[in-house]
Design a protein around this nucleic acid. Structure first.
Lengths: 122, 122
DNA sequence: AGAATACTTAAGCATGTGCTTAACAATCAG
DNA sequence: CTGATTGTTAAGCACATGCTTAAGTATTCT
């Protein structure tokens, strides 16, 4: 049985997945201050360098971070567009829900409250 | 070796984790149109009911969804505040990065570029 | 060249995630 | 009461995740 649902942008999976870890979010916060090398990024954490590397690979795989190796140093930068895409999805949900509440409100503000299904006014 | 880093809000972990799945995001989109029962939420998916239940538990554990059982029907609703909290984190990153670019720009627009190193805090 | 630096790869391990099926409630309709 | 509807619990399985250590490679310094 094939799953022919979910017409949604599959790329957001990896973005939110990347955001779902405190180490990776801390790395992103750090990168907002400007580009950094792998060992600079690793310094604050009680974690091995390979572990940080793996976090960086997750971040890069999601598109939230880009990196380039120059000499023996890899320089990592945040990718604002990817951050905005995730933000945009949440923003769309928020506004959709707000629109619904507005419709509901203006419906209740009209005259005739017929069989108040949700929350009978006390 | 204890990990005494990461002074950040740990609750965002579960929020982003919940968002990192297309089924759960589709459920959230659906809930923007108003409350729904478990089987209503399950209907569009080629997936067993227990699977949907588990997704709902993840969503509820993250605070993105609240639910209440009335009779034999569980009614699920989205929690806008939780959506806004995730959105707010991303928004803060974006603005932080924009501020940095502004500083960089006005710095480059001025005359004297001294030692273009990133972060020379000794 | 030889040593230090900065990163990378590989393998392994414990735990978490996303499903499944089967069986078990609880409630409502006739 | 009987039976259909709606949801819940439990067990199990395949695979993903987040680390670790050990052993590389590539670059720069002296």
């Amino acid at each position: 049985m094939l799953n022919n649902q979910l017409p949604e942008d599959p790329d957001l999976d990896s973005v939110f997945q990347a955001l779902a870890d405190p180490t990776r979010r801390a790395i992103l916060i750090r990168l907002c201050d400007g580009p950094a090398s792998v060992s600079q990024l690793a310094r604050p954490f009680a974690m091995s360098l390979p572990a940080i590397l793996q976090h960086l690979q997750v971040l890069e795989g999601s598109g939230l971070v880009r990196s380039e190796k120059i000499g023996r140093v890899r320089s990592c930068t945040i990718v604002p567009a990817a951050v905005r895409r995730a933000e945009g999805w949440l923003s769309a949900r928020r506004t959709a829900e707000e629109r619904r509440l507005d419709r509901l409100e203006s419906f209740l503000d009209s005259d005739d409250p017929p069989t108040t299904t949700t929350r009978s006014t006390p």
